[in-house]
Structure formats: C-alpha cells, structure tokens
C-alpha cells in the first residue's frame, strides 16, 4: 500500500495545474473496473447532495473487496484512488485507512471539504465493512 501511495504522489507531482490534476483524476476514473449495473442498488448508494457513489463491499477471506462507481467523473477518479489503495486489502489494513493521501495529493481542500461528494461516507462504509469482516 505504501508503494502505491508513493506512486500516486509521484504521478500527481508531475501535474502542473488544477486542470491537469482533474484531467488525471478523470482518466483514473475511466480505468476503474466497471461496476455491474445490478450492484447499483439503493442499498449501495452513498448519496451526497452533489453526486452519488455506489459501493458494493464484500468480505472475502478476511479481505475487503468492492465494486464502486459514481455519476460524477471527478468523484469517480477519487473512487479509483480509494480502489487502488484499498481494494483487496486485508480488513486490518482497511481499518487503518485514512484520508491523508488526499491531503498529500492536494485534493483535500478542493474536494473533500465540500458537502456531499461522499468521500468521508465512503471511508466510513469501508471501515464498517472491515469491522464486520473481522468480527465474523
């Protein structure tokens, strides 16, 4: 996970301005594995007032696996970062997850402080799933 963090930081460092950063986020979003339509249920919806995120989280052999998508391409890019860092990781590691990477990427102020993009809610969902996974 640390290697992946470092990779992300290195990639973002090459981007010169906000437009390039968002462009990169959008590209990351497009590389995210497509979420099967059947998983986009009301139950899996993390509703924000500006954009929606669907999260289907599963505990498999002590690991957290998930499919996710968003109707916002920029939020989908954020989802892709969460996916890159945490999908398939052990429940223990997911429990230790924090959002400091978004601060380090310089995205915190621009995205996370806004109501409704669901980043905080996304993390809460992941951690809850990880807690449930460990107590099974």
């Amino acid at each position: 996970m640390d290697k992946r963090r470092a990779q992300l930081l290195e990639d973002f460092d090459l981007l010169e301005n906000w437009e390039e950063k968002y462009d990169y986020l959008i590209e990351l979003g497009f590389d995210l594995a497509e979420m099967p339509q059947v998983l986009k249920t009301e139950e899996n919806l993390v509703k924000g007032c500006q954009s929606s995120v669907w999260f289907d989280i599963r505990c498999e052999n002590g690991k957290i696996n998930f499919d996710a998508d968003s109707d916002s391409l920029i939020v989908k890019g954020i989802v892709a970062i969460v996916d890159y860092l945490y999908n398939g990781q052990s429940a223990e590691d997911v429990l230790k997850a924090d959002l400091s990477i978004f601060e380090e990427l310089g995205l915190w102020q621009h995205l996370s402080s806004q109501r409704g993009n669901g980043l905080m809610a996304m993390l809460a969902h992941l951690k809850k799933a990880a807690t449930d996974c460990l107590s099974q």
Binding site: W18, Y22, Q50
Partner: peptide
C-alpha cells in the same frame, strides 16, 4: 451527459466560481 458537480470543479480550476447542486 455531464454531472453538474464536475462542471463546478472544472470551472474552479479556471478561476470561475459558480454554484452547483440543488
């Protein structure tokens, strides 16, 4: 075909402040 939130974020990258949402 474009989410309003995305437009707001991209406008901001160019210094343009608008409101998006409900």
């Amino acid at each position: 075909g474009i989410q309003h939130f995305d437009l707001g974020v991209l406008f901001d990258a160019r210094g343009v402040a608008v409101r998006t949402g409900q």
